[in-house]
């Protein structure tokens, strides 16, 4: 990792009619860095990445990728980037090897170099022996790794992954991220969008994005520390709704929200919530089960920063 910015985004704006999808977004990504855009669907992640790939023209602001302006030098930008979109849009009626040959041809990879890269991609995606299967017959994880292979056949300096792991099983996702880290070590700059919290943890740096605005940026650790201003408690109680209403009235409680079947409650530091809260809730006819101090997740950070409950669930896919 070095300090030369590979991607520079400056006050980027994209409007669709009256709707502002991306609002004054600015960030810089160093070469070899894995940078994540984390936010719910419709928050402007994909629109941002599409502008950086030259698929959409910015309404205002500017962005450069490897020093090339994405609005004016889109065709040159495309020589240096790999792009993988949400649907791993390969040709289902071509075989794995035919897809690789096709994209190799489009990226101008030829001769021995192409053979080598195709062999690498087949090995990387675990498709050895299945090269002649139609892509449509491959499972999600295979398809995804094949799509990654197609996107990086030409050894791009920058890789854009737009929700690239959506709909893939957890094991395949972990394998996929190992490949991403390997490329990052080789100096490839990687910009990913995701709404999976566990994936966001893999990134070197993150930008939390909500309704087209970046609400926080930094390393995952730093974001969690700065977002939660107090101690975080997990409280299991019943009824859950009544518990949430009651706990918000409790002394020292800064915020509270439902996480799964329990509550996450932020209390100001210096209090004794483990003893105070159960008593308070019992007085409000709420039965308390487990209560413990936990370390905040990115989801806690996001909820705390945006006041929304929008992340982390598969239903947002």
């Amino acid at each position: 990792m070095n300090d030369v910015p590979s991607i520079v985004v400056d006050k980027l704006v994209k409007r669709f009619g009256d709707f502002t999808a991306v609002n004054q977004v600015s960030f810089q990504i160093r070469s070899g860095e894995i940078f994540g855009l984390l936010g719910p669907n419709g928050s402007g992640k994909s629109t941002t990445i599409r502008m950086l790939c030259g698929l959409l023209t910015p309404s205002s602001g500017s962005a450069t990728v490897v020093g090339l302006d994405v609005a004016r030098q889109a065709e040159e930008v495309r020589q240096h980037i790999g792009y993988m979109s949400q649907k791993f849009s390969l040709y289902n009626d071509l075989t794995a090897i035919e897809n690789l040959q096709f994209f190799g041809g489009l990226y101008g990879v030829k001769g021995r170099a192409l053979d080598e890269r195709i062999a690498w991609a087949i090995k990387m995606s675990g498709l050895a022996g299945s090269e002649q299967l139609l892509t449509g017959e491959l499972s999600g994880g295979w398809k995804q790794r094949l799509a990654l292979g197609c996107a990086v056949l030409h050894r791009p300096q920058v890789l854009f992954l737009d929700e690239a792991t959506a709909g893939v099983d957890p094991l395949s996702r972990r394998q996929f991220w190992e490949l991403i880290h390997e490329m990052s070590r080789e100096g490839v700059t990687i910009l990913v969008t995701t709404h999976y919290m566990d994936e966001a943890e893999y990134c070197n740096r993150l930008a939390l994005i909500d309704q087209g605005l970046i609400v926080e940026m930094g390393t995952p650790t730093k974001i969690k520390q700065t977002a939660i201003k107090g101690d975080l408690l997990l409280v299991e109680c019943s009824p859950l709704g009544g518990g949430l209403a009651a706990v918000k009235q409790a002394p020292g409680v800064l915020e509270a929200s439902v996480f799964g079947a329990a509550l996450h409650v932020v209390v100001s530091t210096g209090r004794q919530p483990l003893t105070e809260l159960p008593a308070f809730l019992a007085a409000h006819d709420v039965r308390v089960g487990r209560i413990e101090l936990i370390s905040p997740s990115l989801e806690d950070a996001f909820v705390s920063l945006t006041g929304s409950r929008a992340l982390g669930s598969e239903s947002y896919q």
Partner: peptide, 14 residues
């Protein structure tokens, strides 16, 4: 319709 256009546009093909 098959969603392959986005990938195609992102390559250097004119």
């Amino acid at each position: 319709e098959r969603g392959t256009m986005e990938q195609l546009i992102a390559t250097p093909v004119t």
